[in-house]
Design a protein around this nucleic acid. Structure first.
Length: 422
RNA sequence: GGAGACGUCGCAUAGUCUGGUCUAGUGCGCCACCCUGCUAAGGUGGUAACGGGGCAACCCGUUCGCGGGUUCAAAUCCCGCCGUCUCCGCCA
């Protein structure tokens, strides 16, 4: 949720943001209208209520005829108070409803839709398989050859877009995620293993129940949601708390399973484990002062890139366009690894600066000299199951074996090459 | 799943039976000042969040786990829910 005061003081900035996202700027005026109604009905209610309280005190002290008279008056006042209170509550609900539909104000992202991203830079060397004299196999071929990935049985047990990681595949994922956790801990993050089922208010607070609600699994019987990332639980971790950020950002590294319905992506990335309903992820999450947020965003990006270097993948960094930002994000950088068998880049990391959007909804504040104010929240990927796709494809050798990047070897007992099983 | 106890301002607690004087008291912690030639101790004052109004000092409202209800009036009475603890049952 954005700052109502910003909306009042500078509605044009919010309208411009809506435009950049390709959303309706008229929503801004709807909120402003509702807010004006809310404030006037609130004033009505509060002055009546003050009157009622003052009379109540007189009633307490009065006796006999005087008391009877006061009671008669105060009785009908109570009716009016109740009515005005209902009006004020309705008006408040209306503002909330509209305000919740308003996405975060864009900060520096290029305008436009999904394809209007800006490529910031390319890193790493893309292999020339033609020059090496062989055609690269895709990750599923390789994974099956290594006895690492079993999608057929995944589908048998759970349906399409499910899989088993087997043998060296399971070890590879653990290695990757442990490497990510270790890096985070070395940088001062608090490691966390988080709940993957959360209450509606937590899910709503992180901004995932808006336009992209279809992506989320819901357990109707228990009124709980399965998270698509540990960001949700980590954002909720400090909900309704007042933090002391005087010593700098609070950084958490969340390890969790992630669940996504992948509604509306039928026929897209159906082969292998690129787009799946369940995977694991290590996620960085940071609570920091608003002034630090942009710099913290750069730091999260740098840590993501450090991990990509560790697994020796060629990638590019993109500045996501406004229309492709999540509801909560003001700006987002993705790192996309090169996928040799598809001649395209595949998103491996994503880091968002949500400024105060989530914190405002969740009630995460910090104490300052003048009072309290919402903090900024940021998140970024340090490793996911999907990374295995890029690792297998980019480090494959002509015989179907896969070279283990040096950064992962300590986590695989020194293993240097994954060999095909007979 | 069953029974009971509890949920109050950062922490601890009073207040709930018997509704109004609760503008929620007290202790600890914290902040400021004072006193004490150091230390320890002592004194005085201040110390929740959120919203509305105002240039401001300040004023008003909301919040005693959450949501309803009764009442002129609810921390206090009633109902539902959530959470914590204890015991019992069941089960990895």
């Amino acid at each position: 949720m954005i700052d109502l005061r910003l909306l009042r003081d500078n509605p044009d900035a919010v309208r411009a943001s809506q435009q950049a996202r390709g959303d309706d700027p008229a929503l801004v005026d709807a909120v402003l209208d509702a807010d004006a109604r809310r404030r006037s009905s609130l004033t009505d209610f509060e002055s009546l209520r003050a009157e009622q309280k003052a009379l109540g005190k007189k009633v307490a002290k009065a006796a006999g005829e005087e008391k009877a008279e006061l009671l008669a008056h105060t009785k009908q006042l109570a009716e009016r108070v109740k009515a005005r209170q209902a009006d004020a509550n309705d008006a408040e609900r209306e503002v909330d409803e509209l305000l919740y539909r308003l996405p975060n104000v864009v900060e520096g992202a290029p305008p436009g839709g999904e394809d209007d991203y800006l490529v910031l830079r390319h890193e790493g060397r893309i292999r020339d398989f033609a020059a090496e004299g062989f055609t690269p196999r895709d990750h599923l071929d390789l994974g099956e050859g290594l006895g690492a990935i079993d999608t057929a049985r995944g589908a048998k047990v759970s349906g399409s877009r499910f899989y088993f990681l087997t043998g060296v595949g399971a070890r590879l994922e653990l290695a990757l995620l442990n490497a990510a956790m270790d890096q985070a801990v070395a940088e001062g993050f608090t490691p966390m293993i988080t709940p993957t089922l959360v209450k509606p208010e937590t899910m709503r607070g992180t901004g995932f129940l808006g336009a992209h609600a279809d992506e989320i699994y819901r357990l109707e019987k228990d009124d709980l949601y399965l998270v698509g990332t540990s960001e949700v639980a980590l954002a909720g971790y400090h909900a309704d708390e007042i933090l002391d950020l005087a010593d700098g950002p609070r950084r958490y590294a969340g390890w969790s399973a992630c669940y996504r319905r992948e509604a509306g992506s039928h026929g897209k990335d159906v082969r292998g484990i690129i787009r799946v309903h369940q995977f694991h992820k290590v996620e960085m999450f940071s609570y920091c002062a608003v002034e630090d947020a942009a710099a913290e965003h750069e730091r999260l990006l740098a840590w993501e890139e450090a991990m990509l270097r560790k697994v020796e993948l060629p990638y590019r960094v993109i500045d996501t366009a406004a229309g492709d930002l999540g509801t909560s994000a003001a700006r987002k950088f993705d790192c996309e690894a090169w996928l040799p068998t598809q001649d395209r880049y595949l998103e491996l990391t994503s880091t968002s600066n949500c400024t105060t959007y989530q914190a405002r909804r969740l009630g995460v504040r910090e104490r300052t000299e003048t009072g309290t104010r919402p903090v900024a929240t940021l998140n970024g990927t340090l490793g996911t199951t999907r990374w295995i796709v890029a690792i297998l494809e980019n480090h494959q050798q002509p015989d179907g074996s896969v070279r283990v990047p040096e950064g992962l070897r300590p986590y695989l007992g020194g293993l240097e090459v994954l060999e095909p099983v007979a």
